[in-house]
Amino acid sequence: MITGLSKLGLALFTICAFFTCLQIGFSQDEVTEREYVYAEDNQQCLKCHGHKTYYFYNEGVGHEVKERMNPYFVIDSAEFYQSNHWNFSCTDCHSMDYRNFPHAGELRMEVKAVCMDCHGGDDTYAKYHFEGVDEEFIKSVHSTKHSEDFTCWMCHNPHSYKINARNNTNVKQTIIYDNNICLSCHADINKYQLISDKINPNVLVKHEWLPNQALHFANVRCIECHAERNDSILVSHNIQTKDKAVKQCVECHSQNSLLMASLYRFQVKESRNKLGFFNASVLSESYIIGANRNYYLNVISIVIFGLVFAGVLFHGILRILKK
């Protein structure tokens, strides 16, 4: 019999392994028609700044030379034309004098525009609550510790930034995109030291206390725990000091998971509690113990437990009475 059971066990294990090995992925590509009216104009800049090297005629030596482009000034044209600012001319933000080459030295002192210069006080963008975002940012540790050195551009590269959380149906992609924003400084000492003389703390070491660290990093954004929630703006921008970060597991791992007000806030309205699962919008991408309990399974389990206890009690009482 043991041999038979062992075979049954092996068969069950094989079936489980088979299903575990199956993976079905879905991808959705959004195709949008865009008319790039400034493409030709911008190409004047991108023919040099779109590459790691560029050519120019050097009058001193009397022929064309090839030079390396400063890597911080290389613009990925593919990223730029997919970004929020895809319909911009370079000179909408940069001086018209950049049209001349060699660029004048004083252009290095150019005061760069920041988000609020265009987005602030404009009814066109009212629904994005830029003023609210700015207020939150000013309260954040990024602003209070670094003053004006820390601008929107530290996180949101104007040449590549695109709104993500509310448009992207793939939450995993949103997580990677948003976490990469944080890691662009917190995992890169060169950028980190643009606004700090300190050595950036090792993110992995600092989060050693976190169980299943890799799983958490892949399934939640840094801001879920490190930003104060604010329902009046789309994405929290008030990054808190580490002592105020969420550390109680149960704040996410519960029926009233805070993730529903942050990471899943754009999905939550569309698929609340489908098939009886609480916080069901999480289920298409992830699973959170404690937050994704199932209403029907809960009821069934309570009923079965109740019946078992009642049966045992009834049987026991009858045994005593018939003794």
């Binding site: 299903f19 575990t20 199956l22 993976q23 992925g25 298409s284 992830s286 699973y287």
Partner: peptide, 13 residues
């Protein structure tokens, strides 16, 4: 655990 099994999250299953 693989991420999806017939469209259902592997961890969920």
């Amino acid at each position: 655990i693989v991420s999806k099994v017939f469209g259902i999250g592997g961890i969920h299953l």
